[in-house]
């Protein structure tokens, strides 16, 4: 059987979900954001909640997320996505509300909003993309930057005496009473992608069951910021990021 004979709608295994628009994503080649956007779109499509879902976009590379996933979006000021999501969820309690934030947004300028939204147990899902760097602004050091990791503002590596320790904010959030599901996933290989998709689905389900805040951290790469190729970034992440940010469920009640 030739390749052209196999390429037939009857033999389809996997295709881009229609919820993901045809607009080409502006992310750098190999960026983890694309995979997470795709998973979000697939989960929303499979659950059939396109009309009931509202996303809150951050400041950071994902600021243009509204161009790529065909649902309702609101763009929040830097770090304020959980506060905006709280407002939306309280006014429209039947909607599925999620925030999509990076580590600079969630763990630096938005620490207060994040901690208090989780502490109040708002029925929202927080998707936290942790690549240990400020990607959009040129690869500066972020709270989650690893000890010794080189960035444009720590060219000799992060020095804990000067810059403090990497902030494991997901572990912190797992301690709060308001969170019901706190997990750390990655999207660097097929198994990771499948697990991350299940985690996102669980986050939406928890929000329907009014169980509290779900926090889904995705340990990600920023190959442009890290100055590595996409494949080398994945290897670097497995070797260096995973020991500091181990994958798995931190809380599941």
């Amino acid at each position: 059987m030739t390749t052209n004979e196999i390429i037939n709608p009857a033999n389809l295994v996997h295709k881009k979900t229609d919820l993901l628009t045809d607009v080409p994503m502006h992310y750098c080649p190999g960026c983890s954001h694309g995979v997470v956007h795709k998973l979000l779109a697939e989960v929303i499509d499979e659950m059939g909640i396109q009309e009931e879902t509202i996303g809150v976009a951050p400041v950071g590379c994902a600021v243009f997320a509204y161009n790529y996933i065909d649902i309702d979006w609101q763009q929040a000021a830097h770090g304020r996505a959980p506060a905006v999501a709280t407002g939306i969820k309280r006014l429209l309690p039947e909607r599925y509300v999620f925030t999509y934030q990076g580590d600079g947004d969630l763990a630096a300028i938005g620490t207060a909003e994040t901690i208090h939204a989780c502490n109040r147990g708002e029925n929202i899902m927080i998707i936290f993309i942790n690549n240990g760097i400020y990607g959009m602004t040129g690869g500066q050091m972020a709270p989650t930057t690893l000890e010794g990791m080189k960035t444009s503002t720590s060219p000799y590596g992060r020095n804990v005496e000067l810059n403090g320790y990497p902030l494991n904010i997901t572990k912190l959030l797992a301690e709060l009473e308001g969170t019901c599901y706190v997990t750390r996933q990655s999207v660097h290989n097929v198994a990771g992608v499948r697990r991350a998709k299940k985690a996102i689905q669980k986050g939406f389900e928890n929000s329907e069951l009014k169980k509290g805040t779900s926090v889904i951290e995705i340990v990600s790469t920023c190959n442009s910021g890290w100055k590595l190729s996409p494949a080398a970034s994945n290897d670097w992440m497995v070797k260096n990021m995973f020991p500091a940010y181990p994958l798995g469920d931190l809380k599941n009640v």
Binding site: I6, H14, T17, Y27, C31, G34, V35, K38, V187, R194
Partner: peptide
Amino acid sequence: ACIGCAACAYVCPDACITVYKV
């Protein structure tokens, strides 16, 4: 050599791969 496992499509950040299998 393709076995239609869709591993490529799962990891593709730009959702540009469609997979068929027989």
